[in-house]
Design a protein around this nucleic acid. Structure first.
Lengths: 102, 102
DNA sequence: ACTCGGCATAGATGACTGTCAACATAGACG
DNA sequence: CGTCTATGTTGACAGTCATCTATGCCGAGT
């Protein structure tokens, strides 16, 4: 990002991911999934800590999934979610090391 | 973020920063400022590359400024903006290294 | 002092977002 | 097969956002 001015298409693509992270509930969801034992969590583990209803959690999980930040799979009764590290790493590397400027 | 579940206050705080990054125009603005010679740019350098009006650019710069991502100063005729590296580094480190999970 | 250029602010508007209640679906288990 | 539990989907509504036009403010020069 510091090197070259970031063309229009890349900016739109990245903005969608950041938008998925721009909600406190979604950030906490991502953190809960990432920090959960085994690196994955079912929805039943995620609805508890929040004051919002279960459909709202489901909606936020869908946003994270469509942004490519998490993966999901149904195994029997429960649906499990896990973090996709490559997507977060991409965003992380984009933001790092503008420290040499100024 | 992987270690502990990210409490509610921290999530709200971080969400505001990510929200500031969740627009293609603002991402490109930040990139333009960071990659500009000297690490800072005046608004006159920033209005050109976009199809939106000057007040819109001014609005986006205000969002970035209030999110704590950039600083600004008026020097004579022009107003200069620069990136605050600490803020970006904070977000970057938050997103990195969930790679060991799964 | 007046005017001009650079930038910010105000108000309006159309689009999008977060949330809930209600309903639909899909396995599990009797 | 029927029913119960766990999730996802839909529709609706209130709030927020991105963008515009019009206007205001501040320095610089003349």
């Amino acid at each position: 990002m510091v090197r070259e001015p970031l063309d229009e298409d890349a900016a739109s693509d990245l903005a969608k991911m950041f938008k998925a992270l721009s909600d406190p509930v979604r950030l906490r969801l991502l953190s809960l999934i990432a920090s959960h034992q085994g690196g994955e969590a079912c929805v039943c583990d995620l609805t508890g800590p929040f004051d919002v209803s279960q459909p709202t959690i489901s909606h936020h999980l869908k946003v994270l999934r469509e942004a490519g930040l998490v993966g999901s799979e149904r195994r029997g009764t429960w649906v499990y979610y896990w973090v996709l590290p490559a997507a977060l790493a991409r965003l992380s590397s984009l933001l790092e090391a503008p420290a040499d400027a100024r």
